[in-house]
Design a protein around this nucleic acid. Structure first.
Lengths: 140, 140
DNA sequence: GTTTTATTTGTAACGTTTACAAAATTATAG
DNA sequence: CTATAATTTTGTAAACGTTACAAATAAAAC
């Protein structure tokens, strides 16, 4: 279980000053593994931190990303960048019907030709998720 | 070889009225497989089509995408969506040093769990390309 | 040739993100 | 403990890619 105290220590150990705002953002990301965008994090935290600024959330996810604590995932430029605290290699399935994002395990990573070395891999699928396919066939 | 006449017929056959602008945009994409963004297409075509509108380029790539003639690739939300006339499954290697995008063959597609069916797959790597790695080791 | 339809154009607006400076907070030194 | 310095947060303004929309243009249908 990732408590506030844990997050405090993890940030401090990485040289990131563990301010209340940074802990809150990190906590939101660990508690909501739904690949939220900045605005989602911001509006949810606003209830508990009424003075929170959107810029602070942008700054924080940037710091977290630079330290490798989160992955920035490029799904749709139109709706803003999303962030994923799960940095284990895995794929994302984006349902074109319900817009839901499902984590898909990657049994084996696609290989790169010799000479290339990757720091980050992103694999994303687009299609109809099993849930929406079910609805389609039963209601139509 | 893909001539203007070819493109004309391909668009017409798909039910897309082959206007001069649409042919020009499609031609640019077939001649420049460098995954250009809308603005790149627009500014290059502006020389030959001085009245061309950015909106027309947006409209055209949208139509081409809807008909499956191009893939929209999500690389960096900050710099706009890129388009790829090569719709064969392949990966993209983005060099964090020179920002170049290299096409990488995909020997085998990552598998999806049962129940999922994908219309589109995107695989992207981020790292240092062989070219930049060479420069690093020789100049430093 | 006139009417209808489709396309192009240009401007305005939208949403996400960055730049920036002022305010607030936290750390450091005496 | 107080004064100073450094860092962080905040809020506004601006940048950027993109979309909405209506007027202008071009093409098609009759």
């Amino acid at each position: 279980m990732t408590t506030t105290a844990n997050i405090h220590d993890i940030l401090a150990k990485a040289g990131i000053k563990p301010t209340a705002q940074r802990i809150a953002v990190t906590r939101y990301l660990t508690d909501h593994i739904t690949h939220p965008c900045v605005d989602e994090i911001y509006s949810h935290l606003l209830e508990d931190y009424p003075t929170l600024s959107r810029t602070t959330v942008y700054n924080t996810v940037k710091v977290l990303h630079e330290h490798g604590f989160v992955n920035a995932i490029d799904i749709d430029p139109a709706e803003g960048q999303r962030y994923d605290i799960n940095t284990e290699p895995h794929a994302h399935f984006i349902c074109t019907s319900c817009s839901g994002i499902t984590d898909i395990p990657l049994s084996q990573l696609p290989q790169l030709p010799p000479g290339y070395e990757a720091d980050e891999i992103q694999v994303s699928y687009r299609g109809i998720c099993p849930n929406c396919r079910k609805k389609e066939t039963t209601t139509i």
